[in-house]
Design a binder for these strands. Structure first.
Length: 177
DNA sequence: CCCTGATTCGC
DNA sequence: GCGAATCAGG
């Protein structure tokens, strides 16, 4: 797969959008997340929202070394002002001393049956359950996020909900509990 | 375990 | 320039 102008553009857009490398790779198709990351670096658009320069002094070469492996674990660059999540900033926030129950401002139905992780579009991968929960127009909306079997877009529970067996009406015998 | 990005280096 | 392998962390 070649990095056409369009693909590079899409890559740039998605990367700026905050999508992960693997997600972008899946979106583009034909490339792995490594390819995406490599390209991102080559394009010098790493770090996403981090104008602060980070001249890290990498000194590793464990690839073709005649010796064992260098134990040079120098990490002189721990500074990382991550600003990826673009959430609305709340200037003042009353600290709610109750970590117990979240009030339910939205009148969403209690569709959540299994323990739902608060998966957003950003955390969805090919292996996370994409069962939508809540109203997409509210911030309460999220996805199940449970791990799903390979290829299946939903977790086991939601798979059964999604693909309700229409067949299997005849054979309902000897199903001992 | 799953995932994330970062880096290196042979191609 | 490209990206697999690898690393390092969550």
């Amino acid at each position: 797969m070649t990095w056409t102008d369009e693909r590079v553009e899409l890559l740039t857009k998605l990367w700026a959008d905050g999508l992960s490398a693997s997600q972008i790779a899946a979106e583009l198709g034909g490339v792995t997340r490594n390819a995406v990351i490599g390209k991102v670096h080559r394009l010098s658009l790493s770090g996403r929202a981090k104008p602060a320069s980070t001249p890290a002094a990498r000194t590793r070469k464990p690839a073709t070394a005649s010796n064992g492996r260098s134990v040079t674990t120098g990490r002189p660059n721990p500074v990382r002002p991550l600003v990826a999540g673009n959430t609305v900033l709340k200037p003042m926030t009353q600290i709610a001393p109750e970590p117990r129950r979240m009030p339910r401002p939205v009148g969403s139905d209690d569709v959540v049956v299994p323990i739902s992780l608060h998966a957003t579009i950003l955390t969805l991968t090919e292996q996370t359950c994409k069962w939508p929960i809540g109203d997409p127009s509210t911030e309460d909306f999220h996805f199940c996020g449970q791990r799903s079997s390979s290829g299946i877009p939903y977790c086991e529970y939601h798979s059964r909900v999604a693909y309700q067996p229409v067949h299997d009406r005849r054979q309902k015998k000897a199903v001992g509990a």
